[in-house]
Amino acid sequence: MEHLADKIQDYIEGHLEGQDLIEFENHLNQDIEFRNLVKLQKEVHGILNKRLTSGESDLRESLFLAENKMKYRKKGIFQRLQPLMAVASAACLLFAGYLFLFSPSDNLYELPSMQSEIVRGQESNEQYEEAVQLYNKQSYAESRAILNILIEKEPDVIQYQYYVGLSYLGEQKWLEASEKLTTIAEGQSIFKDEAKYYLAVSLDKQGKTSDAIALLKMIPSQGDLGKKAEKLLKKMN
C-alpha cells in the first residue's frame, strides 16, 4: 500500500492515468482503510483549497485595525505595551517548555537521505535517480559526478547543488561543503534553511563554532528542522 499512498495527492488532483490509475482504483475498491485515507486527504485538500483562497488575511487586517481603534482609544503608550510584553513572555516560556519537552532525538550530524523524484514510474529522470541511489549508498563522489552533469544541463535547479554540497559533507570535505552550501543558505530556495543547518555542521567541524551558532539561530523554529537546529544550538553552547 505504501507506494500507492505516495500517489494519493496525484489521484486527488487528477494526475494519475493509465495503468497507475487502474491499479490505484482497484486498490481503492478493495481496501477500506486505504479508501478512508484517500477520503480524509481529499477533505483536507478541499479545506486547504477553500481556506488559502478565502481572503482571510485581508479580513484579519481590517479586524486588527478596528480592534486597535476600539482597544487603545484611551490608553497611554505604556499601557499599550504592557499586555504585548506579557503575551511575548508567555509565548517565550511556552516555546522554551515545548522545546524542552519535545526535542527530537535524531542524530544531529547525520546526513539526510537524498530524495527520489519518482511519483509515477514513466516520468523518472534516470540520471537523477542513479545519483539518488549512489548518494544513499554513500558513494558520494560518483553521485556528485552525475549531479554535476545535471547542473550543467539545468544550472537553476538548486536541488542538484544542494545534494552536491551534502555529498562533500558525507566525505567530510568541510571546506568544499561550506563553499557549496553557503550560496544556497544565502538564497531564497526551499533548501535555504536545510543548507543553513548543514553549513553550520560543516563550520562547526572546522572549529568555526560562533559562525555555526549564528547560522542556526537564523533557522525558523517550526517543524523538525527547527527543533533539530535548537538542539544542535544547545549542544554547541
Binding site: Q9, V44, Q115, E117, V119, D156, V157, I158, S189, I190
Partner: peptide, 24 residues
C-alpha cells in the same frame, strides 16, 4: 523554488501525507 517539477510533486505528496497524519 529551484527544484524540478517531479521533485516538487514528490515533496508535495510527502507534505500532504504528514499533514493528513497529524489531522488523523
Amino acid at each position: 523554488m529551484g527544484i524540478s517539477y517531479a521533485y516538487l510533486r514528490k515533496k508535495k505528496s510527502e507534505c500532504m501525507a504528514s499533514l493528513v497524519k497529524k489531522v488523523k
